[in-house]
């Protein structure tokens, strides 16, 4: 089974000996207060940041030993900024996800068409990116990652800056990827989103792992009080929880 495993990751001033074995088929949310090291951990897992100590292993081989293109085929990464420098068409942008593959053109086209269809974007294929709404743009950027058919999908705050309907839709797409066998790892700021959509939550506090487990456990009220120094209560049913302060 494909496993992405961090052992004793240390990045000066950011992470202090974080270990976690991530499994495919799960949506793992990385939570924590500002500056806790969430994005740093994600960048290490994606192979974009070399830790000062410790290592990340993919399927029992050190990630650092993989050639960049091999790593890129296995791990898709969606950064937070969502930058697109040129006004590409949706189709051309999504096709960038195929760059790590030296595949025949027909195969690339099929993968792009499938990624567009998966995220319900086929009718936007010829549109310029600049004409899209925020929600459409977020889906297009996710489709870019899916087009590379990575076994691991790592995303930094993919749900931030989306309205409720788009958050739910995109979270649904991410869960579907996990259900299809991919490993999904997300940095999530909004604890209710993590609670409702993740199957596992890692809580970071000051660069160290403060909790790791199913959301009900890792985001229990006492953990929130300890890590965020906020007294808060969960309301609602499992899968539709809301967090209220006080």
């Amino acid at each position: 089974m494909s496993v992405l495993e961090a052992s004793d990751l240390t990045v000066p001033d950011r992470l202090h000996g974080v270990s976690a074995a991530l499994r495919p088929g799960e949506v793992t949310a990385i939570c924590g207060p500002n500056g806790a090291g969430k994005s740093t951990l994600l960048a290490c897992l994606a192979g974009l940041l070399a830790p000062a100590a410790g290592e990340v292993r993919l399927d029992d081989a050190p990630l650092a030993a993989l050639r960049p293109r091999e790593r890129a085929r296995a791990i898709g990464f969606l950064p937070q900024d969502g930058e697109v420098a040129w006004d590409l068409t949706v189709e051309a942008l999504v096709a960038l996800g195929r760059l790590p593959w030296a595949a025949p053109a027909a195969e690339n086209r099929a993968a792009v068409a499938q990624a567009l269809a998966t995220l319900d974007l086929s009718r936007l294929a010829k549109r310029q990116v600049s004409t899209l709404s925020g929600g459409e743009r977020a889906r297009v950027l996710l489709a870019r990652v899916l087009a590379g058919s990575p076994r691991w999908l790592l995303a930094d705050e993919p749900l931030a800056s989306l309205d409720l309907a788009h958050q739910l839709a995109l979270a649904g797409h991410l869960r579907a990827q996990a259900a299809g066998g991919a490993g999904v790892v997300l940095v999530v700021h909004d604890l209710a989103l993590a609670m409702n959509h993740a199957s596992r939550v890692l809580v970071l506090s000051n660069g160290a792992l403060a909790a790791d487990g199913p959301p009900e456990q890792a985001l229990a009220e006492e953990v929130i009080a300890r890590v965020w120094s906020v007294r808060a209560r969960w309301l609602g049913e499992p899968g539709a929880r809301a967090l209220v302060a006080g």
């Binding site: 950064p79 930058e83 590379g148």
Partner: peptide, 20 residues
């Protein structure tokens, strides 16, 4: 050329696509 295309998505995304 291909690396420059990947760079359209920013430096982090380009590196995640295998650009050195």
């Amino acid at each position: 050329g291909r690396s420059l295309d990947a760079l359209s998505l920013g430096e982090a995304a380009a590196r995640s696509l295998g650009v050195e």
